[in-house]
């Protein structure tokens, strides 16, 4: 594998710890020992249920959330271990597009002013250059330059998303973290947004970290995928392999639960809700919900091990899982 543009080693992020005079509220580990390597130019998917730590991981990569342990390397440079303000400055090449970028537009400001503000904050203060870059970027996301004169309420939902993307692209990022970029979109708009993202990646040489719970979309657009469960990556591999031959019982359950157009019955469902981070099970975190769990699973935390080249899985029993899968045909 080529040198990753963004990597994390043993990353731990703690949330909400408080030390008072009389009592201490223990912190929860939302991200607990994550290793990750995102290659330049790829779309790296992160999937998992709500509360698995996807967004906290993204915030830590971005530098908004300070890591409690571990290391983050961006373009070969260690950027972790700093105060949030400094951390964010060192990671200007990493930008974040949140779920509904339209909601981040100021309703009282013309779109052009919002776009120019981002540029000014990042040191581009020359009016003419601002305007030139805004026009160029609007064209790249498929919008007319005249759109800069509009107010957010005059735009459709799809157009607002494009503006949200333009706002990030103006800053010339190298890595863009997309948090649920298609949540709440209609199918036809979703297709247009995914196509646009693909075009922008090629045109600006971007690398994407693509956080989503829509497995159909992830399968479609991601090169590699990491599956998270309770703050850990339990399986990682190329999208093609992972969806064809999922090894971890959790990945299998997740894939089985996703509804498909052909309405096939997809096997037994996963019982129970994801346990809370405040009561992380001992041993393998998935063992209380796992149909294959043995006593070893409750006693010992499984370390990630290679199941195939470029495919790792953290499970004591992945070798014993039935190999044929519904997508094998």
């Amino acid at each position: 594998m080529p040198e990753p543009i963004l990597a994390a080693r043993g990353l731990v992020v703690e949330l909400g710890g408080r030390r008072g005079l009389f009592r201490r509220a223990p912190a929860v580990r939302a991200v607990d020992g994550v290793d990750l390597a995102v290659a330049s130019g790829e779309t790296f998917g992160i999937v998992g249920e709500s509360g698995c730590g996807k967004t906290t991981l993204a915030r830590a990569l971005l530098g908004l959330q300070r890591e409690a342990a571990g290391e983050i390397v961006l373009e070969g440079r260690t950027v972790s271990g700093h105060h949030p303000l400094a951390a964010r400055r060192m990671r200007a090449a990493v930008q974040y597009v949140h779920q509904d970028p339209g909601a981040a537009l100021d309703p009282w400001w013309r779109v052009g002013r919002t776009l120019a503000e981002g540029l000014a904050i990042h040191g581009v203060t020359d009016r003419a250059e601002q305007e030139a870059r805004i026009a160029e970027t609007l064209a790249a996301v498929g919008l007319d330059a005249a759109m800069a004169q509009r107010y957010p309420h005059e735009l459709s939902g799809g157009q607002q998303r494009r503006i949200g993307l333009a706002r990030i692209l103006l800053l010339r990022p190298k890595v863009v973290i997309l948090d649920e970029p298609t949540a709440g979109l209609d199918l036809s708009v979703q297709a247009a947004v995914l196509r646009l993202l693909r075009e922008l990646r090629a045109r600006f040489g971007l690398t994407y970290v693509f956080i989503s719970h829509d497995l159909s979309v992830v399968r479609r657009v991601c090169d590699r995928v990491a599956v998270m469960y309770l703050g850990r990556i339990v399986e990682e591999g190329s999208a093609a392999t992972l969806f064809r031959e999922p090894r971890h019982p959790y990945t299998r359950a997740l894939l089985a639960a996703a509804p498909h157009l052909d309405g096939r019955d997809t096997g037994p469902s996963l019982p129970g809700d994801p346990p809370s981070l405040r009561a992380v099970p001992h041993g393998c975190r998935f063992h209380p919900r796992c149909s294959m769990a043995i006593p070893l699973c409750a006693a010992q935390d499984p370390a990630p091990e290679p199941a195939a080249p470029g495919h790792t899985v953290a499970c004591h029993r992945w070798r014993d899982a039935p190999t044929e899968h519904r997508d094998a045909a």
Binding site: L187, S188, A191, L194, V217, R220, V221, H260, L261, D262
Partner: peptide
């Protein structure tokens, strides 16, 4: 037909439907 062609399970290419 166009809408189902936008579904990621089925899409040959993610085309979307022109217009709104």
């Amino acid at each position: 037909r166009l809408l189902l062609a936008c579904h990621p399970d089925r899409a040959v290419d993610l085309a979307g439907i022109p217009g709104t």
